[in-house]
Design a protein around this nucleic acid. Structure first.
Length: 280
DNA sequence: CGCGCCTCCTGTGTGC
DNA sequence: TGCACACAGGAGGCGC
């Protein structure tokens, strides 16, 4: 499932393949693929056709492609979105939503999305940071991420630590998998109240978040199935390094206790009953 | 405004 | 063999 490491892997691939290329044609194959764009698909297409892509930027799980017009294309992969580079004569994917062809006739950029939780949109004048994603906090890999401010905001919240890690307005890029991994490393249960965490505990947790995200980027992300692949259709291999996520019934890699699964926010949380005791 | 729940979507796996 | 249903979950929106 695309979280920061998967989206960063896609960003790097896109930067290599589309920077400096000029869009010749755009096709929209599914209405839900274009988000928050009230003027309609025709306007979306008109704003992109003939424009040159200058760069590929990322904040948290969002990507945006600044154009030479000063506008940007925003992309979010949701649960199952893929941005693929494909030869112009390659067969259409079953869930092809948007196709970008380039003036050089080279590989096309295709947005493919089975569950349609992802989508593209255009931000007018949003080259620096699109307004549409201004509410998304900096991610912990961002050099300007403010550790002290994060700690203060986190400890000022009255909620559980895992909820806070998943709140993209507090810290972005962390999803269900890497939240569980960071909490396992920090030996904290996800329901620990944020307002009772000490500053050093938050600092340790943040270091574990950064470590696990960095290691996953090196591995090219986590792929459980074919839903997450890089722009060339290749899987990442961080699933081999997971210590918590998906390990219900298996021994904790630290203490040997049998890992548990708990239901939380309509999804699953995996933790060690001994290393990560529930609060109270 | 803070917090937490609901919903969107479709393919896969499981149990009867 | 076929059907029903749980499950995967990012994030906007809404109710309290």
């Amino acid at each position: 499932m695309p979280e920061l490491p998967e989206v960063e892997t896609v960003r790097m691939g896109l930067a290599k393949w589309v920077t400096g290329r000029t869009i010749a044609a755009v096709e929209v194959h599914h209405p839900r693929a274009i988000r928050r764009h009230l003027p309609g698909d025709a306007h979306f297409i008109a704003m992109l056709t003939g424009r040159t892509i200058l760069d590929v930027s990322r904040r948290g799980k969002y990507l945006w492609l600044p154009l030479d017009s000063g506008d940007s294309v925003i992309a979010h992969l949701g649960m199952s979105g893929q941005l693929l580079m494909q030869p112009a004569d390659a067969e259409d994917e079953k869930h092809l939503r948007v196709r970008f062809a380039f003036t050089d006739g080279g590989p096309q950029l295709r947005f493919v999305d089975q569950r349609t939780f992802g989508g593209l949109s255009v931000s007018e004048g949003g080259a620096e940071l699109p307004d549409e994603i201004a509410h998304i906090a900096r991610d912990p890999m961002d050099p300007l991420f403010d550790d002290a401010a994060f700690s203060a905001r986190l400890r000022g919240r009255h909620t559980e630590i895992k909820r806070a890690l998943l709140d993209q307005t507090l810290i972005s890029g962390v999803g269900n998998i890497y939240a569980d991994e960071a909490l396992w490393r920090a030996m904290l249960h996800g329901t620990r109240p944020t307002d009772k965490l000490t500053r050093p505990a938050v600092s340790r947790l943040l270091a574990h978040v950064r470590d696990v995200l960095s290691e996953a980027i090196v591995a090219g992300g986590t792929s459980f199935d074919e839903l997450y692949v890089n722009v060339n259709g290749e899987s990442g291999y961080f699933d081999r390094s997971l210590n918590a996520y998906g390990r219900e019934g298996e021994p904790c890699k630290r203490c040997g206790a049998i890992m548990r699964r708990e239901s939380f926010m309509n999804r699953s949380s995996f933790s060690c009953p001994r290393c990560q005791p529930k609060p109270r």
